[in-house]
């Protein structure tokens, strides 16, 4: 019995390679053709709320990659046992459980960042991109592709988040990752020539308002679609 099982396993793997063409597309599609924010229009709320600075956006991206990958995996494992009528509540419990895991681990690993982000980590529960992928993909597909789909979509989401945060922090606060670049007195610059080069720019408070995130994402969609013309809305 033991022999046949060990012989059978490689055969199964030959049929379905761990990183076949479809699996790779699951990761790369959300980065471009099927981006969660610019194409599927999911997860906008958090993209507006936490993109005033880069470092929260990076931590948020990592947290969402973890939560989404495993939420997709667990939902996919349970997909035949969840009754259709209560599926949303079950999904939310899975998400809430994973978010609690993230929150507690962040609290244990890096307390200052936890204090800075605690509210936003809780907001992952109501991030529609996670629920959207669970509903659209994990309820209908096998665990491994679902896991990859979750990770891929979270990365696509995070890429937009970090790009938007980059522009909003640079022009809104005149800094990057907390380092002051523009404005009256960049803290880290001793070289006066470099200081003179950068100090002309006065941070624009409009970029800190939520409305500016909408403008930045709007322009980002413009650029994305000008580059990838298949996505242009023809209707």
């Amino acid at each position: 019995m033991a022999d046949t099982s060990t012989v059978d396993q490689p055969k199964v793997k030959d049929k379905k390679p761990l990183f076949g063409k479809r699996e790779r597309r699951l990761i790369t599609d959300p980065l471009n053709d099927n981006n969660p924010i610019t194409v599927q229009v999911l997860g906008i709320c958090s993209a507006l709320a936490i993109t005033t600075q880069v470092s929260p956006a990076v931590v948020m991206t990592l947290a969402v990659i973890f939560v989404m990958g495993f939420a997709n995996l667990f939902t996919s494992l349970l997909r035949h046992t969840i009754p259709k009528q209560v599926r949303m509540i079950v999904m939310l419990i899975i998400i809430a459980f994973l978010v609690t895991v993230v929150e507690l681990s962040l609290k244990a690993i890096n307390y200052p960042i936890y204090q800075e982000l605690s509210v936003f980590i809780g907001l992952i529960i109501t991030n529609c991109i996670i629920m959207g992928r669970l509903e659209a993909f994990a309820m209908a597909d096998k665990p491994w592709p679902s896991f990859l789909d979750g990770v891929g979509n979270a990365m696509g989401y995070g890429a937009i988040l970090i790009i938007v945060a980059f522009f909003r922090e640079l022009f809104g606060s005149g800094s990057l990752m907390g380092w002051e670049l523009f404005g009256p007195g960049p803290q880290f610059m001793i070289n006066t020539e470099a200081h003179a080069l950068l100090s002309w720019y006065m941070p624009n408070n409009l970029m800190v308002l939520s409305a500016s995130a909408l403008f930045v994402i709007g322009v980002l969609i413009w650029i994305h679609r000008a580059w990838n013309r298949d996505l242009i809305d023809v209707s």
Binding site: F215, G218, V219, I221, W222
Partner: peptide, 23 residues
């Protein structure tokens, strides 16, 4: 509207403008 901006891109920018109006 310029092709790539049509639809979603325009909706984002419009919402931003409406938000500033509502402020």
């Amino acid at each position: 509207v310029p092709g790539p901006l049509r639809g979603l891109g325009m909706a984002f920018i419009l919402t931003g403008l409406m938000g500033i109006g509502f402020m």
